[in-house]
Simulated scan of single mutants.
Amino acid sequence: MRKIQVQGMHHITLMGADRQTSIDFWEGVLGMPFVFEQPNLDNPGDSHLYFDPGDGRLITIFTNENRPGDRHRTATDPGCVHHLAFNVSHASFSQAEARLKARGIHYFGPKDRGFMDSLYFKDPLGMLIELACYKFEPPFGCSHADVMIEAHRIRTGRGDDHIEEVHLADAIEALVERRQQSLSDDRSARNPF
């Protein structure tokens, strides 16, 4: 038996209501360019809208002008999607509260998650949306996941309950030491003063 190795998220498709509500939210609030539209090839009564969340991948929405929107919280039963989280820069994250307030969108947070800060609000159809802002930049040639797994190993090795910035800083240092060569025989911390 062998795995089917995935190489990233291709797209996520959500059930929307009318076309304009989707465009107004995904592009008009979250800034995702509206890049493609065609009929839903499995249900010609629906339209299929495609948005770029910023990494060239896709968020797609099935819309139908006869499908009313429902602003109640989407189901959180087992097997349901709890929320969608989108990466934002620190500059955008610092402006998010004011920009949500300007639209009258209720939110909660920001929340300190140790390795990121989070802000939550609902889309027009009740889907919980998270704006996530990493507290670190991975070293050159590494991904955020590389830093996270290294920080996890450091945290659990020390018996710490949850991730903190010290785990991230130590993980970044460890990754740099492993991945980047040095002419020095001793790369330990020193005080030149």
Rank of each mutant, 00 (worst) to 15 (best):
E165R: 07
A132I: 10
F51R: 09
G54S: 09
K3C: 12
D42W: 03
T60V: 05
M148H: 08
L84F: 09
M127G: 06
Q95A: 13
V176M: 13
H90E: 14
P39Y: 05
L131C: 09
M9K: 03
G16N: 03
I23F: 09
L183H: 03
M148N: 02
F108C: 04
E177Y: 05
L168S: 05
A151M: 12
F62Q: 02
C133T: 06
F140K: 10
T21L: 14
A96R: 02
P78D: 01
R178P: 01
L183I: 04
L183S: 02
L125Y: 03
D18W: 03
D160C: 12
G104M: 09
F86V: 01
L125E: 12
H162P: 08
V35Q: 13
Q7V: 11
S94Q: 15
A174K: 11
L30D: 10
P139D: 14
G69C: 08
G157H: 06
G79Y: 12
D46S: 10
E27D: 04
T13Y: 00
Y50S: 09
S184R: 13
E97S: 12
T76M: 10
P192Y: 08
I61L: 05
I163C: 11
T60P: 08
E65C: 04
R73G: 01
P124S: 07
M15Q: 06
D46Q: 14
S143A: 07
A171G: 03
G45R: 15
S118L: 10
P139G: 07
Y134S: 10
H83R: 06
A17I: 04
R190L: 12
R67A: 05
D112I: 02
I12E: 00
H167G: 02
M1D: 12
A98V: 07
Q180P: 08
R67T: 11
F115E: 00
M1R: 04
A96I: 01
P124H: 01
L119Q: 02
K135H: 05
D70C: 09
V147A: 07
K111D: 11
M32F: 15
A98P: 08
S94A: 15
R67Y: 06
H82L: 02
V166T: 09
R158Y: 02
A98R: 15
V29W: 04
T156R: 13
D18Q: 14
T76C: 10
L41K: 11
A151L: 11
F140V: 13
R19V: 05
S118Q: 03
E164P: 01
D24V: 06
A145E: 15
C133E: 04
P124C: 06
T156C: 06
T156Y: 13
R158C: 00
D55M: 02
L131H: 09
T63M: 03
S89V: 13
I154P: 00
T63V: 12
Q181I: 07
I105N: 07
G109P: 06
D185H: 14
S92G: 01
S94I: 05
G126M: 01
A132P: 01
V88Q: 08
G109M: 06
L58F: 10
